[in-house]
Simulated scan of single mutants.
Amino acid sequence: MKATFEPYVLKFKRPGGTSRGVLTEKLTYILTLEEDGRTYLGECGLFKGLSADDREDYEQKLQWVCDHIDLGIQVLWDQLREWPSIQFGLEQAFQALSFNRYKDEYNDPYNPDLFESAFKNGEKGMQINGLIWMGDVDFMRQQIQEKLAEGFKCIKIKIGVNWESEYQILKQLREEFSPEQLELRVDANGGFTFEEAKVVLQQLAELKIHSIEQPIKAGNVEQMAELCAHTPIPIALDEELIGVFEREDKLALIEKIKPQFVILKPSLVGGIRGSLEWIDACDYNGIDFWITSALESNIGLNAIAQWTAILYPEMPQGLGTGSLFTNNFPTRLEVRGEHLYRNK
């Protein structure tokens, strides 16, 4: 077996606005395993400025992984605790290898079968939320109208930059659509202060918002725990999970904050195995979760979607990001209405 990696810069079709700034491109890394003339790909979805493994020696660590690929996935994963995006890229490539190694036909390394399910076979779709990026009021309204026209019944709106305008958009949406007609989720990306968040939570409750992701910046555990204990609407942890590597620390964080939901982004929390450690902590505390992509290319999104499908999700998932880039890889994933499918 031979392993190599290559950086790849994804270009956004249109700038994506968040409370952390506007995104026009995203660097990612494609890991390639070669065995018996076949190639198996995994995406190490580094997220600059957000990933715990956003370090100057990232490419050196990837080269070390390639030089020691014979150690196997179990040993490598354990030795990469502080490199979650590399953990996930390795999981993808090794899963593609193990699932397809003895099959007669394997000619699509960009879209490998990874986990057996009705979704994998193109027989069943998964409900996803429509993602609305930040921008001026007209731009946000345009995005919302597009998603409503496509049939989405769950919309997630990025907030935390201009709350007054964002609140008016949410208020108008709720006046037009009841909670039964349209589920509204908001994602603050840590955009509010503790005092601001307490006011915003009350305003969101009046609009019957489903949930808010990360109302204040990660790392303020005591304040987040207080918000979760008294919030009038569910709070979901997102960035709060980044950089928590050990299983016992994950359980301690969940038990301390006691959020209503947890958002899992495999590229940021150690891939499938790292996500499952968070899920165990959630299950132990009676907390629900959903899976969200983190601006991966279609290679990573294919893996996240197939894995999510075997969890039998009941809520809308955050997996509709495959159409964001002008130079994405070929894919069998397709959004039809508010559902994500994998074409046969």
Rank of each mutant, 00 (worst) to 15 (best):
A3H: 05
P7L: 11
R14C: 10
G17L: 03
L23F: 15
K26V: 10
K26F: 05
R38M: 03
G45W: 04
G45Q: 11
L46I: 15
S51G: 11
A52T: 06
D53C: 04
D57Q: 11
D57L: 10
Y58V: 05
Y58N: 02
E59K: 01
L62H: 00
V65P: 04
D67P: 07
I69G: 00
G72S: 04
I73S: 13
L76C: 01
W77M: 06
E82D: 14
P84E: 02
S85I: 02
I86R: 02
I86N: 01
G89I: 04
A93T: 00
K103S: 13
E116R: 12
S117F: 03
S117D: 08
N121T: 10
G122R: 09
E123F: 13
K124L: 11
G125T: 06
I128F: 09
I128H: 06
I132T: 01
F139D: 15
F139P: 05
Q142K: 15
Q145P: 09
G151I: 08
G151P: 08
K156N: 09
K156G: 08
K158S: 10
I159F: 07
G160T: 08
V161K: 14
E164N: 15
I169Q: 14
K171R: 15
R185Q: 07
V186L: 09
A188C: 07
A188D: 05
G191A: 04
T193R: 07
F194T: 05
E195M: 13
A197Q: 11
K198Q: 14
K198G: 04
Q203F: 09
E206Q: 13
K208C: 14
I212T: 08
E213G: 06
P215F: 13
Q223M: 11
A225R: 03
E226L: 12
C228I: 02
P232S: 01
D238A: 10
E239I: 04
V244M: 01
R247Y: 09
E248A: 14
F261G: 00
K265Q: 01
K265T: 01
S267Y: 11
S267D: 13
G271N: 02
F289V: 03
W290H: 07
T292P: 08
E296Q: 06
N298D: 04
G300P: 08
G300D: 07
N302C: 07
I304M: 02
A305Y: 05
Q306G: 03
P313W: 00
Q317E: 14
G320F: 00
N328A: 11
P330V: 07
T331D: 10
V335D: 09
H339P: 12
H339G: 10
L340Q: 04
K344F: 14
